[in-house]
């Protein structure tokens, strides 16, 4: 019998929900500086999706074996599997193929009700109030994954969920119409408060489930546009004991995924702790999970 647990943190429910989206025949694209995505994919790989393979953007390599999430030694996973490619392939390897489906998680700084996303800037592009690092490959691929694109944010608030984003760098459902370029468009948004999906016709964001302990008003008030609310709002299925145990003990025992959730002093303390522990490791290959 599956045992569910009430004893989990925000990073854990996010990671578990993201892992549950992975299918056994997926290529899981791991981007730069996204340890939570890496943890989610590894959790999926060692629980329900053993056939899924990693595509590490950082090494541009396809890797089969799951290893413990690492901050400093990621290259030991990716670069070793490297096969020579020229620059076109180096970027375009993520393009959907006929044979394999692709799953990639994007973390937007801003998102609108149609799933358009912004990772470029706040304010006018010519004179930004806040400049973000940039959107990397999101502008290239968001619109045509056959499985759609997958979104997550640990900051479900009215700064992230806005009526109008300042720059479209990831394409959702333009004005609520179908996705362009033959892709399926955004499939879900996993947040610290809820699991959001998209309604059909028009394609607009709606509440899928709400996390335990969160009420509907909080979700509505934390969203800067009107969400479609189903008649019967269900609660998100809790993480299982097994999922939490594997995540905490095998996939990411150092808690590197938490760096995506924490801020300020608390984050700095954890970061220093992780660095210290990893520098002290004699064996610099992230541990193989079997």
């Amino acid at each position: 019998m599956t045992e569910y647990s009430n004893d989990f943190t925000v990073d854990e429910i996010l990671t578990v929900l993201m892992a549950r989206e992975v299918r056994n025949d997926d290529v899981m694209i791991v981007g730069v500086a996204t340890p939570m995505v890496w943890a989610a994919f590894t959790l999926a790989k060692v629980t329900h999706a053993p056939g899924a393979i990693y595509h590490y953007i950082m090494g541009n390599t396809f890797v089969n074996e799951p290893r413990q999430v690492s901050l400093l030694y990621l290259e030991m996973n990716t670069a070793r599997a490297y096969r020579f490619q020229n620059s076109g392939e180096c970027t375009l390897e993520s393009l959907p193929s006929e044979k394999l489906t692709t799953i990639e998680w994007f973390r937007p700084a801003q998102i609108d009700m149609y799933g358009n996303t912004n990772n470029i800037c706040i304010g006018d592009w010519n004179n930004p109030k806040l400049r973000f690092p940039g959107c990397a490959g999101i502008a290239d691929f968001s619109m045509f994954y056959s499985r759609g694109s997958f979104l997550y944010t640990p900051r479900h608030d009215t700064r992230t969920f806005v009526p109008k984003i300042d720059f479209i760098s990831g394409v959702g459902f333009p004005d609520g119409k179908s996705s362009i370029c033959g892709g399926s468009g955004p499939q879900c948004v996993v947040t610290n408060l809820a699991y959001l999906t998209f309604d059909d016709n028009p394609k607009r964001m709606k509440i899928g489930t709400i996390h335990p302990g969160i009420d509907l008003e909080t979700v509505k008030n934390s969203t800067g546009f009107e969400l479609i609310i189903p008649d019967d709002v269900k609660e998100t299925k809790l993480p299982t004991e097994k999922e939490l145990k594997i995540l905490r003990e095998k996939v990411d025992p150092l808690g590197i995924r938490k760096l995506e959730v924490l801020a300020g002093k608390e984050r700095e303390v954890l970061l220093n702790e992780i660095i210290k522990k990893e520098l002290a490791m004699e064996n610099r290959f992230p541990k193989l999970i079997i």
Partner: peptide, 29 residues
């Protein structure tokens, strides 16, 4: 984007003024 840099260099290699991409369409780029 990733592709605009990769393909920009590829153009230089092939001595062509541009390369086509089935991406970026629909963005504010």
């Amino acid at each position: 984007s990733e592709a605009s840099i990769a393909l920009g260099l590829k153009c230089s290699y092939l001595k062509v003024p541009f390369m086509p991409l089935k991406g970026i369409i629909g963005t504010d780029f």
